[in-house]
């Protein structure tokens, strides 16, 4: 009996850390692929990267804000898993309709700076913002003792940023050499969905036990 009580928080913490790693990995993989996705329509000039990076920073900042707010009320793994499910769903326009979206905007906007900025907003803002919500929410799920909150936040940032570093490296060094862009995006989307399922299942089981 004692064993199960002490083992439970450990495994759910481990899940949170793993999932934070995955979301860090996927955010940067998508950002890198963003340059590839936009290049046929807007080129690979410096302002195309400017647009992509701007949108990612902006969406993450909004995501952090909202994720932090949502963590105030009854933080739980089920809702945490819903973020992953939401991110997976919001990746669908990028996977399914990026070409018609880019075609439309290429025709509508002559200036490739604003063309690439608006396309980046449409394709990347929502999924990235939702993935941004994961970081502060993870901190809240892990923190039990406020004295250790800085330590836990540090560990979480370590894990998720390490994920981002590896996501960048893996995508730019190997994944683009082995797979097509859409194949990589679909895999990321399915990974997010699997992460969602894991978090929600674990959360429901914990709720049943406690309730």
């Amino acid at each position: 009996m004692n064993q199960t009580v002490s083992a439970k928080p450990l495994s759910s913490n481990l899940i949170v850390l793993c999932l934070a790693f995955i979301s860090g990995f996927i955010i940067m993989a998508i950002e890198l692929l963003g340059g590839r996705i936009l290049a046929p329509y807007f080129g690979s000039s410096i302002y195309v990267w400017g647009s992509i990076i701007t949108v990612f920073m902006l969406s993450l900042s909004v995501g952090y804000l909202i994720g932090g707010r949502l963590s105030l009320r009854n933080p739980n793994l089920v809702r945490y898993g819903c973020f992953f499910a939401g991110a997976a769903l919001l990746m669908l326009p990028l996977i399914l309709w990026s070409i018609p979206i880019m075609e439309t905007l290429f025709l509508a906007i002559e200036d490739p700076r604003y063309g690439s900025l608006i396309v980046s907003m449409l394709l990347f803002f929502l999924p990235t913002a939702v993935m941004g919500m994961i970081a502060p929410y993870s901190v809240r799920l892990l923190v039990i003792d406020s004295n250790r909150s800085g330590h836990i936040a540090g560990t979480l940032y370590f894990v998720s940023t390490l994920g981002s570093a590896l996501g960048t490296l893996a995508t730019s060094f190997y994944l683009v050499l082995w797979f097509e862009v859409t194949q990589i995006l679909v895999t990321m989307c399915l990974t997010l969905a699997a992460a969602a399922a894991l978090a929600i299942a674990t959360g429901l089981r914990a709720a049943r036990k406690n309730g």
Binding site: I27, L60, T161, G163, A165, T168
Partner: peptide, 13 residues
């Protein structure tokens, strides 16, 4: 995660 942009930026430049 936003912090992770930095290595990417430095790669770029």
């Amino acid at each position: 995660m936003g912090i992770a942009m930095r290595p990417f930026l430095s790669c770029l430049f």
